[in-house]
Design a protein around this nucleic acid. Structure first.
Length: 226
DNA sequence: TCATTAAGCGTTG
DNA sequence: CAACGCTTAATGA
């Protein structure tokens, strides 16, 4: 499929294509399907069998579970730069959650067959995926830890710095385009608490935030917040 | 009592 | 028009 310039730039920043041989890389990129979603669109529905590995060029995805009565619980969010869904591809099973675009989003789908083929044939790709899974696991453990600490400022700090994880989010841009509401969904605090936490972090000189944007000033300092 | 939140609403970029 | 910031009433530790 013909990819947009944004998607090509995005793939250039990603780590995994670099570990492929040239022909594997060309095949993979050739099989990638680029789709634009509008705010509120489903990227994946619950109970369907995962058919692709999902890359976020731009936008924000909510990963959530929904009950029959329409309530939903946010698990996590994926911002531009990240890939998600490898877990569901590995286990041949129905997805237990759904993925929704919270605003207009540009998404890449690498088909399951290609993903599994790379896994079977390229040991370096295997290493990358193990690493990727391991990093995500660390993030979830950290999430539980900060949940116990129950300090909203630490959780917000954690949420922001996780979006700058070099392996999970290979972005070059030090400015995040993320609303306070989306950040709140990610770390499990309310919009107004995110707002005041951002204020505190800004006062400490760790970040700067503006309309729908957050810039990192001191990444190391952010990670130290407890 | 005090902190936090959802909901509503006027303002702003 | 979506995101922000503020107010208010409800909630719960």
């Amino acid at each position: 499929m013909l990819l947009s310039q944004g998607a090509i730039n995005f793939l250039d920043r990603c780590i995994w294509p670099r570990v492929l041989t040239q022909s594997e890389r060309e095949r993979s990129i050739d099989e990638i399907v680029e789709i634009e979603y509008k705010s509120g669109d489903y990227v994946c529905r619950k109970d369907e069998i995962a058919s692709s590995w999902i890359g976020v060029v731009s936008g924000f995805l909510r990963v959530q579970d929904s009950t029959k009565d329409g309530n939903s619980i946010m698990f996590t969010g994926v911002a531009g730069g990240g890939w998600i869904g490898e877990g569901s591809l590995l286990k041949m099973e129905h997805r237990r959650y759904e993925i929704i675009a919270t605003r207009n989003a540009r998404i890449l789908h690498l088909p399951r067959s290609m993903f599994l083929w790379l896994l079977d044939n390229n040991i370096l790709f295997n290493h990358f995926i193990i690493n990727h899974l391991n990093e995500r696991l660390s993030q979830f453990i950290a999430m539980v830890k900060y949940d116990r600490l129950r300090s909203p400022v630490a959780r917000v700090a954690r949420g922001i710095s996780s979006l700058f994880h070099p392996l999970l989010y290979p972005n070059s841009d030090p400015v995040l385009h993320l609303s306070q509401e989306e950040l709140g969904w990610m770390v499990g605090v309310s919009r107004q608490r995110v707002n005041s936490a951002l204020g505190e972090l800004q006062d400490q000189g760790l970040i700067q935030f503006g309309y729908s944007t957050i810039s990192i000033i001191d990444f190391k300092g952010l990670e130290k917040i407890e």
